[in-house]
Simulated assay, not measured.
Amino acid sequence: MPATSPIDQIAERVERLLLLHEQLAHTNALLAQQVMTLTQERDSLKSRLQAARARVDALLDRLPANQPSTDDAP
Rank of each mutant, 00 (worst) to 15 (best):
L30Y: 02
L59M: 12
E22I: 01
R62Y: 00
Q50P: 00
A32W: 03
M1E: 10
I7E: 09
Q50R: 15
D72M: 11
S44E: 01
P74Q: 09
A58N: 12
A65W: 04
Q23L: 03
V56L: 02
L17S: 09
D71F: 14
Q33V: 00
A73R: 15
L17C: 09
A52L: 15
L49G: 01
N66E: 08
D71S: 13
T37Y: 04
Q67T: 03
L17I: 05
P74H: 08
L24P: 00
T4Y: 12
M36S: 13
A58R: 11
A51M: 08
V14I: 15
L59I: 05
E41I: 12
I7K: 15
V35M: 06
P2A: 05
D8R: 05
Q40E: 10
Q50N: 14
I10S: 13
D72C: 14
L31F: 05
A54W: 05
R62W: 01
V35C: 03
E15I: 11
D43V: 09
V14P: 00
T27L: 13
S69I: 14
L59Y: 07
M36K: 08
T39I: 11
A52I: 09
L20R: 15
V35S: 04
K46H: 10
R16V: 03
T4N: 10
M36N: 11
R13I: 07
Q40N: 12
L49E: 01
E22Y: 03
D57H: 05
L24E: 10
I7S: 11
T39C: 09
P68Y: 06
L19V: 08
A65R: 10
A32V: 04
P74N: 12
L20N: 14
T37P: 00
A58S: 14
L60E: 12
T4S: 09
A29E: 06
S44V: 05
R16K: 15
I7A: 14
S5Q: 06
T39D: 11
R53A: 05
E12S: 15
P6M: 06
T37K: 05
L30M: 09
T27Y: 12
L63Y: 00
D57M: 01
L31G: 02
L19C: 10
D71N: 12
D72R: 13
L38E: 05
T70H: 13
I7W: 11
A58D: 12
V14N: 03
L18D: 07
Q67D: 02
R62M: 01
Q9K: 09
L59A: 11
E41L: 14
S44N: 02
D57T: 00
L30E: 07
L30D: 03
Q34E: 13
R55I: 01
H21V: 02
L18H: 13
S47E: 08
Q23D: 03
V56C: 01
Q67Y: 03
D71E: 15
